[in-house]
């Protein structure tokens, strides 16, 4: 059975209805010359054109999250609860690439043994996707098997058409949200194929070579990684703007009275990431670290899950201080092998 569909006047109108239904909404807004996901109270605050600088993952996987707290007693230690997840939230205007990123994170954090702090936040998020009609130069969703109108990870997907906006109901959570929206949505169907085709045609041609996962694995020992990584300065920008990167560190912050254990974002490009206490580092140089990033996304993960751990948003390419392009490096390394 195909998903239930509705029509609405515009994405803005759907947002207005969601806010009118009393929902807490996080949507792209313009802040300091960049688009960021932030809490909105009026539909006009949302900026529904363009790509946010950071991905949508932060709502489910925050930069810093308290896992639990503790208070030193005399004697003993008293454990205190972790963070209270934010109120149920509609994450509105999420591009299909970002929504697909959440779907990948759901798989990672949901796999047994599941990650309770992530799931607690994620269970309170309804994702309203918004098809992408203005791809940017760094966009590459079609290269990883997605499209500007892909439905992965969205509970509802809005696709702007000439005659209004098509609303696809993709999950029970999406249907529950639709139930609150009343007359803003009217039953109806439309074909989004033309929109998809137009957006795809506007994208720069980017493709990943066939057999990349195996090609990269075979290229593990190649000297090419050192050349490719020469530019990389080892910051965490690529990982932190990425919708699917999920590596984290766990740290304590404390004083004499107590403290808390926090989960904070971490990145495989940092030298300390894999450093053993003994001083040994399995990924001792930037070449090994860059290789890990490329292989995790395009070899290790796809071999286990049948798809790249990349949604083609291109943020890492756009934001890299040194102009690294993971698609280019991966393709070159795999091709250079043998």
């Amino acid at each position: 059975m195909s998903p239930t569909t509705y029509l609405a006047d515009s994405a803005q109108a759907v947002l207005t209805a969601i806010l009118a239904a009393g929902q807490r909404v996080v949507a792209p807004v313009e802040q300091a010359g960049l688009l960021a996901f932030a809490h909105v109270e009026q539909a006009e605050q949302a900026q529904l054109i363009g790509q946010t600088r950071a991905s949508a993952k932060e709502l489910a996987f925050p930069r810093t999250q308290r896992l639990f707290g503790y208070r030193f007693g005399n004697p003993g230690v008293e454990l205190l609860p972790g963070e209270e997840p934010p109120a149920p939230t509609v994450l509105f205007g999420v591009r299909p690439c970002d929504a697909a990123g959440l779907a990948i994170l759901d798989g990672v954090f949901g796999a047994e043994p599941a990650d309770a702090p992530y799931l607690a936040r994620r269970a309170r998020i309804t994702v309203v996707g918004l098809s992408c009609d203005q791809p940017q130069a760094h966009c590459a969703c079609t290269a990883v098997g997605l499209s500007p109108t892909a439905t992965d990870g969205s509970d509802l997907l809005l696709t702007p058409l000439a005659e209004g906006v098509l609303v696809e109901v993709l999950t029970a959570r999406g249907a529950a949200l639709v139930d609150l929206l009343g007359e803003a949505l009217r039953p109806g169907a439309a074909d989004k194929a033309e929109v998809t085709a137009r957006a795809e045609a506007a994208m720069a041609p980017r493709a990943l070579p066939a057999g990349l996962a195996d090609g990269l694995a075979a290229a593990f020992g190649e000297a090419a990684w050192a050349d490719a990584a020469a530019r990389c300065l080892g910051c965490g920008t690529c990982a932190f703007v990425c919708p699917t990167c999920h590596c984290f560190d766990v740290v304590d912050e404390s004083n004499l009275r107590g403290g808390q254990r926090l989960r904070v974002w971490d990145a495989c490009q940092f030298g300390l990431f894999t450093l053993h206490a003994s001083g040994h580092n399995p990924r001792a140089d930037q070449a090994a670290r860059y290789r890990q990033r490329a292989l995790h996304k395009f070899s290790y993960y796809p071999r286990a899950h049948g798809r790249p751990m990349c949604v083609g948003c291109g943020r890492c390419v756009n934001a890299c201080p040194a102009g690294m392009d993971i698609f280019e490096v991966a393709a070159t390394a795999a091709a250079g092998q043998g």
Binding site: V108, F109, A111, P113, D115, A217, F220, H246, C247, F248, D249, V250, D266, C268, F273, T274, L275, H276, A277, P282, Q292, L295, H296, S299, Y300, Y301, R303, A304
Partner: peptide, 19 residues
């Protein structure tokens, strides 16, 4: 084998050797 790890449950992404 031992590697640096933070979660123990396959999430934190640092103890992998290949896949």
């Amino acid at each position: 084998l031992e590697n640096r790890m933070k979660c123990g449950v396959g999430k934190c992404g640092r103890c992998n050797i290949g896949g």
